[in-house]
Design a protein around this nucleic acid. Structure first.
Lengths: 340, 340
DNA sequence: AATTATATCCGAAACGTTTCGGATACCCTT
DNA sequence: AAGGGTATCCGAAACGTTTCGGATATAATT
């Protein structure tokens, strides 16, 4: 390690006190133009860089925001997170704030990962993603005074700051669209129901059926796991029923793509024999011509950060809770059912 | 903010000195069983959590590793990075180390993002991804004493620690496979040639052709940008040539998928009229039955961290440079060319 | 009984920064 | 010439932790 150049180094070099050096470098008032220049020159010559740890300790502020990614083993390749991180990162960069990421499976240890960040004072704020029913993380954070924002709502009966997409309205619209095409037998592959968004989406499906007087069939609802494999299982189940659905809605694109894959395997023509729709509009979905609901994940990332930044600076939010309506993108994977 | 519980708080509470409290909590020898228990109990009761900033300052170690993602605006949804981050995160978590992420477009400001992390002493080590020709970041890091590992080689004529996939061997094998199927007119959609891996992959393509006495045609090589759009442009170019290729290799799956999409649009049957292959084997590629080269990105992430962790602890690496051979996954997007 | 070893403790300095509360010197009033 | 204002500076404390070098008391040794 090259010995670190500190304020003291510059102080000795220029003859001014550490105080004066600090002030000159941070642009404080109490320093004459002449000495400021001398000090700036010395700093440049010596290659001074402020030690951020020391600064953090003194200012009691880390200029860092935390994000704990809920991963489940090796396969966590939801393109979703790439885009979210890009959005978050870009926005934070514009504020000069860094992002501290930790991965953690949603198990009993999870909260201690949060505690480490929060109570160890590693971050000024936190972003919570993929909210769950009775979300422990949010309960915990509400008990601390650390600013946080969530991507997703929860059912705690307490107010907190979040952004969410209106999955219920989205799926509702999608389901109605399918019904209007003439579908009556519509299967639904859900996300794990402990995730909040899974419930909203399922609710949107239910409401649309009820409103159109189509009886709900429990066997038409399959709880998947958002992965490719889960989608495959759901497809197998639904397409193996004696009263096979003419349309399948999946809670995310990844699963929808699996449905397409499996359906093709067993010789069904997509958009004719079977309509398939998803949720997310991840990059490859357009190639499949998948009908889906688009949510602007990159922008949600940015928005989350701008909210959090305000909270950290104790500013008021004009919109403490934001609900975004996803866009229905109609492509060729859905069509009228064959007359039977 | 609830007032922070510090060592001093516990010190006052128990009557022992701050020194003793610190030692008791970090499991030092110089403290009797009795007082250790008292102190531990007090710490628990008061809800003590060590302030990591203060600890970092004292220990001159941050237990943090940095990663600067080269993003280019909103569309950066390479699933590639999700998986890499998951691998990195999971491995680091097992060491109790955090990941500090910053996004930064590859522009002249890029180096200052690195300087901030390095010279501000924010991290103990750094991971460099997507290495480039004459990579400025690596040049810079070599001049500092900070441990780092790279995902990818560079052409600096200097040794540094990296992991890379052997793109040359991979593409070589793929090209030979196409040649053996009978293809003679093979187009290549490259990645931007300032990226190191783009050159290796291109070289693999060239070598295979030369070895098999197939003349290189400059017009068969198109420099894409790894995005969906770039792939589409490449497809348009190659399939618009008077001597249209019978096979197209793309430098990544995203572009390959675009080729498939465009080819289908103009009525070509994939795997028959046109063979298409990619690189990466990202999640949706199997659905397209895309022939591709698979690299274990998640594991590369883990491996990078285990190397870096050793470097940080000043251990020797048994393998300072690792070259992984990608697996050729043959699917239905490639086949014999039609007899002409 | 004097000496040495051991166990347990603590004060103070250090990490590098910011900032509060003065101090000094100078100039301008009156 | 005495007073007050202003510009410029600095010492010292603080942020919360770790750790070096001793201090004290007790036990073991001769």
């Amino acid at each position: 390690m090259t010995p670190q150049v500190t304020l003291k180094t510059i102080s000795k070099f220029t003859g001014f006190s550490v105080t004066q050096v600090s002030r000159a470098l941070t642009g404080y008032s109490d320093v004459s133009e002449e000495t400021r220049e001398k000090i700036l020159a010395a700093a440049k010559e010596l290659g001074y860089y402020p030690n951020s740890t020391a600064r953090q300790l003194q200012k009691q502020r880390t200029d860092t925001v935390g994000l704990i990614l809920p991963t489940h083993g090796p396969r966590f390749s939801d393109p979703y997170f790439s885009e979210l991180i890009a959005g978050i990162g870009d926005e934070l960069t514009s504020y000069g704030i860094d992002l501290l990421i930790s991965t953690q499976a949603p198990n009993p240890d999870e909260i201690s990962a949060y505690r480490r960040m929060v109570e160890g004072k590693r971050v000024d704020g936190l972003i919570v993603v993929r909210t769950r029913n009775q979300d422990e993380r949010i309960k915990y954070l509400l008990g601390t005074s650390l600013p946080f924002v969530a991507f997703g709502r929860s059912d705690l009966g307490v107010d907190f700051n979040y952004i969410d997409e209106d999955g219920e309205a989205g799926i509702n619209q999608l389901t109605e669209y399918l019904i209007n095409l003439g579908h009556r037998k519509i299967g639904f592959i859900s996300a794990p129901l402990n995730l909040m968004f899974a419930n909203y989406r399922l609710q949107g499906y239910r409401n649309a059926l009820i409103k159109n007087n189509i009886p709900l069939k429990q066997e038409y609802i399959f709880e998947g796991d958002l992965t490719r494999k889960g989608g495959g299982k759901g497809a197998k189940w639904l397409l193996g029923l004696s009263e096979r659905p003419t349309a399948i809605i999946a809670s995310n694109d990844l699963m929808a793509l699996s449905v397409i894959s499996y359906a093709q395997e067993i010789g069904l023509s997509i958009g004719k024999d079977l309509s398939v729709a998803g949720f997310d509009d991840v990059p490859p979905s357009d190639i499949f011509s998948l009908t889906t609901l688009r949510q602007p994940i990159y922008n949600i990332g940015r928005l989350l950060c701008s909210m959090l930044f305000k909270l950290i600076n104790k500013e008021d939010l004009d919109e403490p809770q934001i609900l975004l309506k996803p866009d229905l993108i109609i492509r060729n994977s859905t069509g009228k059912p064959l007359t039977q």
